[in-house]
Design a protein around this nucleic acid. Structure first.
Lengths: 366, 366
DNA sequence: TTGAAAGCGTTACCAT
DNA sequence: ATGGTAACGCTTTCAA
């Protein structure tokens, strides 16, 4: 509808450029660009003409060209080491939060699956300009990726690692969470509160959550005058059962168990059920840094300190964008877990000595 | 180390362009490009010089510029509707397979989290040239995204949907899998083989797997002269228990159950355990289109027809690249599940009437 | 075999 | 407020 130029109305793979829109609207190319970016004032009249032309032609800005010109792709890469186990619910909540936050701020968030150890491909992607910055999930204490990326000067933000070396970081507040859990159980009268943590090799590998949760648990326990008892269980139902057996077979069986290992939680509950031990009547159980959606799967469902996935996601994006925009390293952001009471914790049982193992007050009868 | 030009050795955010490399190597820009793309012959000598210069300067090709020039980003988008439940193990295996296949063929595979219904953002990303093609996961029978993308002329491949409308597709071969499961159990002597499928509303919504699995199960059963009994269970432990109760309470309780619903499988096993029914002694259980990693979590672990996630991922990428390169629509690819026998299926119990419900041969005693 | 130059679709700056 | 035009970093002709 202008001087005789063949106008493709839609579809068919024909790319409509800014130049096309400009011609159609009878304005200069730079004016079209301006109405899009608001980089300079455009009169309402021309703006209207331009916008009409854009929709008429089905114009779509080319992100690559824009990125080349601005040196910004407006894409954020979320690098996560993906094993065959998939994405845990907690991670998923994180991703969703991050995705929303990114969109709110005009960025695209893409998940880039990378091997946990290989920094190379990650480096390429970032250095090639495909992503403006990188969100690194599940960072180990001595993660090769961190060194590589930060040395290459690629803006990044770490998820899941305490501040060290002045890198931008967001993380679960394990300290606060374990403290809350211990306090909660102690408040119910429990004196023997055990922790089932991740596998022992995780500690050796420098797995942050495992280490920090363990430390926080010990600190919280001793500060209340309780004797901590930490077990490491394999990440499996079987691992959980084993830990439970070890815990229950001794004479000093705990009356409350904190589990920081989702798979093992299933095993613990199964073992308790197999022994006919009532939850929370005889033993209280609390899942920590988990989610009710998972911890609620057991019978009975477990009271949970819900990992703040979504909030962490938002915080991660915000932090990364701050780095991108200002070059400054923001303070670490730590977010605690919220309590979701699903009824698996209750008052400590009255300390009645078991029949098989008489203790201090010499046999009170059963 | 050349005529006096300030040479940045690394890092520090300074971008090294092809022009820089050309100058450093004393060749033309186009020659550098040629050594990189092999688009034209380059003598070994100059190639060596160029490569030396590239590493000396720490050159990284700019993907955006290359994409702009070639009109190919060499990025494939894997669009998956991400809910808070995360990525199932099966999906994860798919993603891994796809990622590997993409890398093998020189492409980057990114996961683009999108709302299941919103086609808009997806369209933008693809139309903007950020991705060359789209892999659509979890496609519903009347998926708005499919229409939008194919109308926009964006190369795509569907995952999880039978061929219809001549679109490129890869999927699990439900027919073959359910058939194999039914045959396997019938071969063990079972005559009452039930199916616990996904929730009923899935059928209404046109959830492909649910519908096709159900159909295949019915077909396989009747072709063997068996009476099919299909139940729909909610995707939860509770849903599984409910279905189990319904199945077990009747007088015609099945001796074998096929479960095509991972969450419900947990409930089924729990209910069987609660009733003291031995698996596979009294009831055989088989998980279908699942993975041993999940179905092995129950006690006892379940014999599984393992969903071919990885193979599907590779097939999906291959199909999409075929579409991209040739514009042709390849034939649908269907891949069946492999059997992983974890011991939860066994011979059908001898049809001995239970003590509480005497049947044909009047009370043989227990 | 190599060099020079014209795009790719934008943005950003300089005029007007 | 608007129109030209030089980048952006690369691929791809076309000559030499």
């Amino acid at each position: 509808m202008e001087w005789g130029r063949a106008v493709e109305e839609e579809g068919s793979g024909v790319v409509v450029t800014m130049q096309d829109v400009a011609r159609h609207a009878g304005v200069a190319l730079s004016t079209v660009s301006a109405t899009l970016t608001a980089a300079r004032p455009v009169s309402a009249a021309t703006r209207a003409r331009v916008e009409t032309s854009m929709t008429a032609l089905g114009y779509r800005p080319n992100a690559l060209a824009r990125g080349l010109a601005t040196k910004r792709s407006r894409v954020l890469a979320l690098a996560f080491p993906m094993g065959p186990a998939g994405l845990s619910r907690t991670s998923a909540e994180f991703v969703l939060g991050a995705t929303e936050a990114a969109q709110d701020r005009g960025y695209q968030l893409v998940l880039w699956p990378f091997a946990a150890d290989a920094a190379g491909p990650l480096l390429d992607v970032a250095a090639q300009g495909l992503a403006d910055g990188v969100l690194l999930m599940e960072v180990g204490l001595a993660d090769p990726r961190v060194r590589a990326l930060s040395e290459a000067g690629i803006p990044l933000t770490l998820i899941g690692r305490t501040a060290q070396g002045g890198l931008p970081v967001v993380d679960v507040d394990f300290e606060a969470t374990l403290n809350a859990a211990v306090q909660h159980l102690a408040g119910l009268g429990h004196r023997r509160i055990a922790l089932i943590n991740h596998a022992a090799h995780r500690v050796v590998e420098g797995h942050g959550p495992t280490i920090r949760a363990g430390r926080a648990y010990h600190r919280a326990s001793t500060s209340l005058g309780l004797t901590p008892r930490e077990l490491h269980a394999g990440e499996s139902v079987a691992g959980g059962r084993l830990a439970a057996e070890e815990l229950l077979d001794g004479s000093e069986a705990p009356t409350a168990v904190i589990v920081m290992n989702e798979e093992a939680a299933f095993g613990l509950v199964a073992e308790l059920a197999a022994r006919g031990i009532r939850v929370p009547g005889e033993v209280s159980v609390a899942a920590v840094v988990s989610t009710p959606a998972v911890a609620g799967q057991t019978v009975p469902p477990l009271t949970t300190w819900h990992a703040p996935g979504s909030a962490l996601g938002r915080a991660g994006v915000d932090t990364l964008l701050t780095v991108l925009d200002t070059g400054q390293v923001p303070e670490p952001v730590l977010i605690g877990c919220g309590l979701v009471d699903l009824g698996s914790t209750g008052s400590a049982p009255v300390p009645e000595p078991a029949a098989d193992a008489p203790r201090n007050p010499p046999t009170l009868h059963r």
